[in-house]
Design a protein around this nucleic acid. Sequence first.
DNA 1: CGGTATCATGTTATCGATAACAATTCGGCG
DNA 2: CGCCGAATTGTTATCGATAACATGATACCG
Lengths: 334, 334
Amino acid sequence: MGARVTMRDVAQAVGMSPMTVSRALRDDRTVNDKTRARVRQVADDLGYVYDSTAQAFRTQKSGFVAVTLPSVNNANFAETFRALTNGLGEAGLQLLLGSTNYRVEREEELVRQLLTRNPEALVLTGGHHTEETRKLVQARDLPVIEMWDLPEDPLGHVVGFSNSDAMAHIVEHLVATGRRKLAFVGASEGADMRGAVRRAGAVAAARAYGLPEVEMIDAGPAPVSMRHGAAVIEAMGRDVAAFDALVCVSDPVAFGCLSSVQRMGLRVPEDLAITGFGHFEVAKVSNPRITTVNVQAEDIGRQVVDLLQGIFDGEIDAPVRFDVGSALVVGETT
Amino acid sequence: MGARVTMRDVAQAVGMSPMTVSRALRDDRTVNDKTRARVRQVADDLGYVYDSTAQAFRTQKSGFVAVTLPSVNNANFAETFRALTNGLGEAGLQLLLGSTNYRVEREEELVRQLLTRNPEALVLTGGHHTEETRKLVQARDLPVIEMWDLPEDPLGHVVGFSNSDAMAHIVEHLVATGRRKLAFVGASEGADMRGAVRRAGAVAAARAYGLPEVEMIDAGPAPVSMRHGAAVIEAMGRDVAAFDALVCVSDPVAFGCLSSVQRMGLRVPEDLAITGFGHFEVAKVSNPRITTVNVQAEDIGRQVVDLLQGIFDGEIDAPVRFDVGSALVVGETT
DNA sequence: CGGTATCATGTTATCGATAACAATTCGGCG
DNA sequence: CGCCGAATTGTTATCGATAACATGATACCG
């Protein structure tokens, strides 16, 4: 339990140089098979544990890919994260995760922290960052991928979809089914840029279709979820019946709204339509099923992995911009 | 964009030794305030970024706390993770997260990987591990915390609650409200030990109350969620009415069951009671609200943080065993 | 004003693995 | 048997920050 076992100790035990041990433990085929076997055996016996820190230091390659997510407590982001973990794990890379709580200032702090770990790539969620974050990132010769958005002025590579286009499809669908007076349910203005873009998308689309101005229903500061949707509608009471449709920033919010609307005896979709965003499980299981947009979170993760692989293999030179798209999923709430 | 900027470069630029730079950038108060200011200024100008890898190597302290979770896509675990991130972040520690996908073999692989990063502590979810995992961990002089369970034979510290006790409370409540024929809805036997313990708890409690044997409804391999609960009940059709209550392994599964049960025209709780586990948002928002057990995921995270702080401060010697408890939350489904 | 405590900075060695280069061993062949 | 190329193993230097120790500068005291 004293000093830790190093390659030197293993080397001494097998009567060879540390270099040979190093080679044997990796799969360098210049070592003799018998030697490798013996080294591995001894390393095991001594309880040797490889020191990635030393490796990272010496080789100047950390084996980390840094990732920021707004929140982990979100099935979509979690799905992307899972895809990233699995894909990069196969390439021997480890994820270094930070969550921004939907705040760019927090993202900046996080990026600063993550960069000190010398990651081999940086994957950011979203396309809105502080100036300082942009500077930090660009000062480094490091592959950067922004995902979940299609920013105008990207930092590097992009794998995402258009939130406002997706919202436009929802509005189009609502118009097609005869709805005119829309309300948008989402977080307060401020931190959550993705939510803001969705709202703006809805507003713009409504204008384009000549609908009356979209009403804003503020469910509180981001992140908003089921209970916020439920609470804000409950607080409104039957006033909500004045609208034809509630356009919600996400499925969980939509489900919360749906629940409150039903509790007060209104029928969905007869009295009021409701739409979500993100194709969360709850949208498919709820009763009625919620009309939503499928954003293919897992696909985003997979595409990012492919992209990174390409970058590490040196096959990619120019910044890539990949639109994974999104698709309207019509449920029973419209 | 050539070689990276190191402390040596900064030192050269200010005309001092690297040691002074090192001291200035940390908050070593032996450096003169003016010197510190100048160093910081120059470091900034040169775009210096601190190298945690080098620090971790030299000091043999990584600044990492390694954490394994069964899944990130679970509001409860995510909540614990958030609490850990926030709490440890304040202490200057970074989380190194791995997800096991509910499999102990995957956990072993993960632990092996995480240990090479020299974490300062290891936080495992659950109390079931492979023999190899136990050996790996115990061979190291490293603080270990198991959370979300109260294992019989812990590896080190424990912060959790009794899943089987919690299940017993649910069964007790069902008995008190006149239910006798129970079915347990959960994942197939196998990977998910936490699920298995809950099931065993339900079975044992039912026996203790002299109820007929609990029927098993297999929702498929772990992890099971809303759609699995919904699917398995839909597949059963009206046979489900033969039971008095569906005891579900989690709230999402319970919600899935609830939804399918309602779709086929049965009334909850009149025709059938349903219970969940975990006090997820959906339990409070669904219609009717689901009777569940509050497991205080955030509290677990906070307690783990406190415990780690105590350990790092050297205030804790003997292994700690902390039961955060759990509480029945009666909803409208029973 | 000499001497000592305090403050501020510098020097040297080091953490563990590995790239780059050097040396040795071995088998095969004329 | 001697020589050559391929297969193995060894040596040395190094990544960047910092602990431990050493030194130089300054203040303060009787």
